[in-house]
Design a protein around this nucleic acid. Structure first.
Lengths: 270, 270
DNA sequence: TTATACTCGTGGTATAGACCACTTGTCTAA
DNA sequence: TTAGACAAGTGGTCTATACCACGAGTATAA
């Protein structure tokens, strides 16, 4: 529980402890390496936190000082720290210093995960199914090719399905995958099997990270027909770009959820 | 509609179109402003996308060119673009250019963690403000008292506000707090100050954990009026229950976001 | 016609230095 | 003892410059 952590700290650690450079001695960076300096430094600092050399509440050496020690410019060091700040491991405080904010948490403990439609419906005790509307390859438009980081004019597989729960239309999903890597997918029967399942079993890849955007829209006539509801009815539009564990882009997905049957829930902390 | 956009564009725009500087003429930045240059630029570019000057698939002017035009250094311009890339609005492609990957919407939520409206707008370089519609104590209805875990018939403070960004209505917020603990709040002036700020400074409590649900709805007439839009327009309804570090319930909040001005973005992993 | 090499423009990384806003601790004067 | 001024140190922003790796055309050679 993060709550207990916060409480504990307020009692025991009235004073934050500044970390000296000597306590971080084993920072080594490879000038000739292919991986950028700031990535190397970020990785090193991450490791220091994981290994416990840097602990919750510790104040990092100043940016100038640390940059000098590493023999990089302050801007480069800042780029490295930026990464850890984005990850929530460090917190910057102007005039004060940069402070270790979190011990490294396992990914499982991350508050929000994501699931495929199939997984999600099963988790809710509903019977998922699909009606495939389109399943073919086509030339990606500019947006999709940009999202999947494909060259212009590249082919993608389009999978357009109505997703049903207990036989009732719940969502309309358009899913785009790079043709080059997944062309064999076109042989599969997607009416029953989960896409994520096929990707895992037959392509040995698994969506691990995604960026999602959520917005509200009003359905147009064809969309409303597919979802068996009225034109102009509100719906959640979720746009998702997923990557696998090696950070390769897997799919871009746009899903319209009927607002009377679906809502999103998550926990967030700060 | 974003859904049809992708489809529509795939017919129209096989080739991406490079955007000339002249098409972005009204980029104005205030050198003397308090908000950092890169935040201003990010906000301007966001607006260009939202207004349709930059469209899905368009290739942005090169970083050097654009930086020159804005009379800022390339590094500063890059910091601005970084923001939009993080939000998923733009995609960088080395050797090719920076491409508009997502259209339509502008302001959006934080990746992970959560923020008050005030914090969120400031983070985007927008000026947040409020118009208080109601601020009083009342008997909680069943839903609210359940969310706050209060006995039936308990008193709560209701704060109903229109939230504005740069003077434009963005959201309609109803916020409920237990009267017993926060009755002193009724003396405060909430037109300018952030609620979270008051809670932290004067009640020594800080929302740390929240549960959120997100759904799409159509605005009814009074809501539409408050938000200065049309009845039936789609909106995101975000219901949030927050707790402090000691896991005590602080507030229940229902916020309606205009869908043409707001979307949420997050990263999820599993 | 086809393949190859080259060039140019793009974003990616890195540098050294500058000034600002903020916090904290210290020193000084009341 | 206390209140206030001050100095030093921190992160925040910005500049001007440099070189690299990659993509996409173009010119050239086969």
């Amino acid at each position: 529980m993060p709550s207990s952590l916060a409480v504990r700290r307020s009692k025991l650690a009235a004073l934050p402890s500044a970390i000296g450079l000597d306590q971080l001695s084993d920072l080594r960076i490879e000038r000739r390496s292919e991986t950028p300096l700031f990535k190397q430094i970020a990785a090193q600092l991450r490791r220091q936190i994981e290994q416990g050399n840097l602990r919750l509440g510790d104040i990092m050496p100043g940016e100038r000082e640390l940059a000098d020690a590493l023999k990089v410019s302050r801007m480069t060091l800042r780029a490295a720290i930026d990464e850890l700040v984005d990850e929530g491991l460090l917190v910057r405080q102007r005039g004060r210093g940069t402070i270790v904010a979190h011990v490294r948490i396992h990914k499982q403990a991350q508050v929000i995960g994501f699931m495929s439609f199939t997984e999600e419906m099963r988790a809710r005790g509903l019977q998922p199914s699909s009606r495939v509307l389109e399943f073919k390859s086509e030339i990606a438009d500019a947006a999709v090719s940009a999202q999947l980081n494909l060259p212009l004019g590249a082919q993608v597989i389009l999978l357009k399905r109505v997703r049903l729960a207990n036989g009732e239309p719940m969502a309309l999903e358009r899913c785009y995958l790079p043709y080059e890597r997944f062309s064999a997918l076109l042989q599969s029967d997607l009416a029953k099997r989960s896409l994520y399942d096929i990707l895992e079993k037959e392509f040995d890849t698994r969506p691990t990270l995604c960026q999602e955007t959520v917005e509200a829209i009003a359905l147009d006539a064809p969309e409303a027909r597919d979802l068996d509801t009225k034109r102009g009815a509100p719906a959640l539009l979720v746009t998702r770009v997923t990557r696998d564990a090696r950070d390769r882009l897997i799919e871009a997905e746009q899903t319209l959820y009927r607002s009377d049957r679906y809502r999103m829930v998550f926990m967030r902390e700060r």
